[in-house]
Amino acid sequence: MWPSRNRTETVTCLACGTDRPRDEAREYDKYGDRWDREGKTFEHLCKSCHSDLCHHPRDELEALLVDLEAGRRNRDAFLARYLSTVEERYGPLEEES
């Protein structure tokens, strides 16, 4: 049987944790390729959190986070290691003006 068209699916924003109707959210693909949909499940961001994201390419980011054991260290230790590793691999961090 086909699902009802007027059924509103609710999703949870992975950034702020709020529940939103699916049509008020954006799909998030941690690999940055939301167009290749085969075999994927997507997480979601509310429109506000989505607009706050940096939309620059994030090549190598997922692998870097795995290498640095993101989510397994306390926040301060992780951030210190992240900053030093990024500088080591890509050069000094400087803000563009």
Rank of each mutant, 00 (worst) to 15 (best):
G32N: 03
T85Y: 04
V11W: 01
G17P: 03
D76P: 07
E95H: 10
T41E: 00
R75T: 13
T12A: 11
H55G: 08
D67R: 13
V66N: 04
R89F: 06
S51G: 03
G32K: 00
L83P: 00
E96H: 04
H55P: 02
S4Q: 12
A25L: 04
R81Y: 01
Y90N: 14
R89N: 02
E95A: 15
S84N: 15
P57S: 12
D19I: 07
L45D: 00
F78I: 06
E94M: 13
D36N: 13
G17V: 05
E95I: 11
D52Y: 02
T10F: 04
R58N: 14
T8A: 13
G71F: 10
P57V: 06
D59R: 08
G91L: 02
V11Y: 03
G32T: 07
K30H: 07
G17T: 05
E69M: 00
R5D: 08
K40R: 07
K47G: 15
D36V: 09
S48R: 10
E43W: 13
L65P: 13
W2G: 08
E62D: 14
C16V: 09
R73Y: 02
H56A: 15
A25I: 01
K40W: 06
T12M: 12
R37D: 08
Y90F: 15
E96T: 06
T85H: 05
L65R: 11
C46I: 10
E9A: 13
E62I: 10
P21G: 07
A63Y: 02
A15Q: 01
D59E: 05
A80H: 09
L83M: 07
D36W: 04
H44W: 15
D23G: 09
L64P: 14
T8E: 15
L93N: 02
G71V: 10
E43C: 12
H56D: 11
H56M: 10
P21N: 06
R73S: 09
F78G: 09
L61K: 02
E94K: 14
R72F: 08
E60P: 01
Y31I: 00
S84R: 15
R34P: 08
W35V: 11
T41P: 01
E27A: 08
T12G: 09
C49N: 02
Y28W: 13
R20S: 12
F42G: 12
C54N: 02
R72C: 05
A63C: 01
R37N: 12
R34F: 01
L65E: 11
R75K: 15
G71R: 08
H56I: 08
T8Y: 10
F78H: 08
L14V: 13
L61M: 09
L68Y: 02
D67G: 01
L14G: 06
K40A: 10
S51R: 14
K30P: 09
G39R: 08
L83V: 14
C13E: 03
T8F: 13
Y31K: 02
E60M: 05
E27V: 07
H50T: 01
D76A: 15
Y28M: 05
